[in-house]
Design a binder for these strands. Structure first.
Length: 282
DNA sequence: CGCCAGGTGCTGA
DNA sequence: TCAGCACATGGC
């Protein structure tokens, strides 16, 4: 068990904002993975308490994964450029963009297309149970995320039986592409956003939106601005409720929010979804 | 039951 | 460049 200083951070907002699908809350702790290492974390008095099953989980890795090493005030002031995003920042201050594993992010967001978060979580859980490695931490039992090589050799029929639907052939083909080395996924963070996105778009089942999610959540390209149905709704604010194509919304957002547009996107996404769920309960 | 979900690929203007 | 369509499935 160790602690990491975590000022200006919200574990809750970060883990529930739809950028990751595999953290579970149980008995006051969040259980999840840093790469293939199982960990449990909780936020307490401005610091993060961490317990891990293996020594590969160092304070430095935790700081990196949760993006505790970025200049957060500078990022926020760069995107705090209008009233809507300002409200979102005030409401969910502490939300950060995680630095997730590239392959897991790619596979997860292929499953995420035209889908809802509950089912995305279920599909990924099925995948991990079927082809991941079992791990345990205290009372928690989980499964690591399967390697691309493992998924590449699974039949489309088997993947469909896990509930993937028409995404099954996409995931299988993309797993092969990564396993073959045709897409050096972990190297995409060293090239620029445009080149990384171009490379990702070569995968089956990866279009503009999924490529932007992978660039942002898995490759540290903070200018990426994924647009899904929720972001379309959020962005009507800027166009007086007119309908605009996603390509034009994307162009506008990148100019409007700048090099950390992805942070603005995540704030707005979480903000509009939260508004909907609060209203739904009332 | 009908509607919705962190869309993509394909086709035809 | 853009609209229109099929595509699987489970939650609500």
């Amino acid at each position: 068990m160790f602690e990491v200083p975590a000022a200006d951070f919200s574990l809750q907002a970060t883990l529930t904002s739809g950028q990751t699908f595999r953290w579970t809350f149980h008995g006051e702790w969040w259980y999840g993975f840093l790469g293939s290492s199982v960990v449990k974390v909780r936020q307490d008095d401005g610091c993060l308490k961490v317990e891990a099953a293996d020594a590969a989980v160092t304070p430095e890795r935790v700081r990196r994964y949760f993006a505790l090493d970025v200049d957060y005030p500078a990022i926020l002031s760069s995107i705090d450029v209008d009233m809507q995003v300002h409200h979102a920042i005030v409401q969910h201050r502490g939300l950060r963009i995680l630095r997730q594993d590239g392959w897991e992010t790619l596979a997860s967001f292929i499953c995420a297309s035209f889908n809802n978060i509950k089912r995305i979580e279920g599909m990924i859980d099925h995948l991990c149970q079927a082809y991941g490695r079992p791990v345990a931490l205290n009372g928690f039992r989980g499964f690591s995320f399967p390697a691309p090589e493992s998924i590449a050799e699974v039949s489309e029929r088997r993947l469909r039986s896990l509930g993937l639907g028409y995404r099954a052939p996409y995931l299988r083909q993309t797993a092969r592409t990564v396993a073959d080395g045709a897409l050096p996924i972990e190297q995409l963070r060293r090239i620029d956003y445009e080149a990384a996105k171009r490379a990702l778009l070569g995968c089956e089942g990866v279009g503009d939106k999924v490529a932007d999610c992978v660039a942002l959540f898995g490759c540290e390209h903070y200018e990426a601005f994924p647009i899904d149905v929720w972001m379309e709704r959020a962005m009507r604010y800027y166009f007086r409720h007119r309908t605009i194509t996603r390509a034009r919304l994307h162009d506008y957002a990148r100019r409007h929010f700048g090099p950390y547009a992805g942070y603005a996107q995540q704030y707005l996404y979480h903000y509009v979804r939260q508004l909907r769920s609060v209203r739904g309960r009332a």
